[in-house]
Structures are given as C-alpha cells and as structure tokens.
C-alpha cells in the first residue's frame, strides 16, 4: 500500500476487506491526503458553507462505502469520478431543497439512515426507534462482535480485540450474540423489506 495516494484497486480491496481494512480505507479517504479536500473545495466553490461541505462529504463517504462493499461500482469510470458523482447528486439534492423551501440546509435523518439499497420511503421515525432499542438490548460488545463477523474477520483478531483466551471462546461469543440478535429481529418484521437486492 503506497504511503501517499492509494490506487483505486487498493481502496476497493480495503473497503471490501476486513473491518480493520475497511476502517483504514475510510480513514484515508477522510484525511487531508485523501479525497476530502477536493470535495470540500468543490462544495464551497458551489456557494456552500464549510459545515455543509462537511455534511455532504460525510454522507457521500457513507454511501460510497456501501456501494463499493455491495459491488455496485462496475468500473466504468474511475473510482474518484464515481465518488464525485455521488457527492454531486447529494449536493444538488440538498441545494435544490434549500432553493425550494428557503430554509437552512439540513440533512434528512431518514435519508442518512437509508443507504441506496434501502427503500427511503419505508423508514419511519418509529422504525428508527425500534432499531435504536434493538441496538441497546444487544449491547456494544455484541454489536462489535457481530460486525466483525459481518466483515468475515478472522477469529484470531476477535480473540485479540476482546482479550479472549482462544478461538473457541470467540466463536461462542459471536454465536451467542447472533442468536440474541436473531431472536430480537424476528420481532421486527419491517426489516425484511428494508433491504432490496
């Protein structure tokens, strides 16, 4: 991995890799050496404030990460052009809304909570609350363990992260957390329609 600029392939591999690798790529993109200054400059050049630019960047990064992880980047243009395309859409959408309503730019909470493979219109305030309650019941530790599993992180890394004795203990921990989550999400039927493949 080059110290300065990452190649498209390096970014894709890292985003689709383990939790740690994904985090490293996001950290790079958010850094002054990454793609943040370019986007901030573009939004400011469009007449946006620094705060708005920051919000557009954060939102773009979230969507970009999901799209790359879900293989929605097909390689027709460069990865940076793909990123820029998302950011322009986000900015134009927000800017258009501001023109219409004459109110300050404000990102829609539901919009942020809904990546492109979720149906935007289906997320209601009470559904967000249900997700928040579910997260509380599962707990931070289990959330982390399950995210490791989601990114197919090697069990050795999970052992190291939680300070466990061996791989079996890590396996048991993840299994217990998953069972707990499955029992809880069974009570939230709307989740099934959340995800569109």
């Amino acid at each position: 991995m080059s110290a300065e600029k990452w190649t498209d392939q390096e970014i894709i591999t890292a985003l689709q890799g383990s939790y740690k690798e994904n985090e490293r790529a996001l950290r790079y993109l958010n850094s002054p050496k990454g793609w943040k200054p370019q986007l901030i400059g573009w939004v400011v050049n469009q007449g946006g404030t620094l705060e708005e630019a920051q919000q557009v960047f954060n939102e773009t990064l979230l969507i970009f990460d999901q799209k790359v992880r879900f293989n929605q980047y097909q390689g027709y243009g460069t990865l940076n052009a793909f990123f820029t395309g998302i950011s322009k859409n986000r900015w134009n959408k927000a800017f258009g809304e501001r023109n219409k309503s004459e109110v300050d730019f404000e990102l829609n909470k539901h919009d942020i909570a809904t990546p492109n493979f979720f149906d935007h219109n289906m997320i209601e305030e009470n559904q967000i609350r249900m997700l928040e309650n579910l997260s509380t019941e599962i707990g931070i530790d289990c959330q982390k363990a399950l995210l490791f599993m989601y990114f197919e992180t090697p069990y050795e890394e999970i052992v190291a992260y939680f300070g466990l004795l061996n791989v079996e203990m890590a396996y048991k921990k993840v299994s217990r957390c998953r069972e707990k989550m499955r029992a809880l999400i069974d009570e939230i039927p709307f989740l099934q329609h959340f995800f569109q493949d």
């Binding site: 999901q66 909570a113 939230i188 989740l191 959340f194 995800f195």
Partner: peptide, 17 residues
C-alpha cells in the same frame, strides 16, 4: 434472516462511521 441481519448491520455501520 440474513437480509434482516444485514439491514441491522448497515444501520450500525452508519452510526459507527
């Protein structure tokens, strides 16, 4: 079931990020 799980994971990742 995995569809539901992914929906929750992605929600967590959004908060995490």
């Amino acid at each position: 079931m995995q569809r539901k799980e992914i929906a929750v994971f992605e929600y967590w990742l959004k908060e995490d990020l």
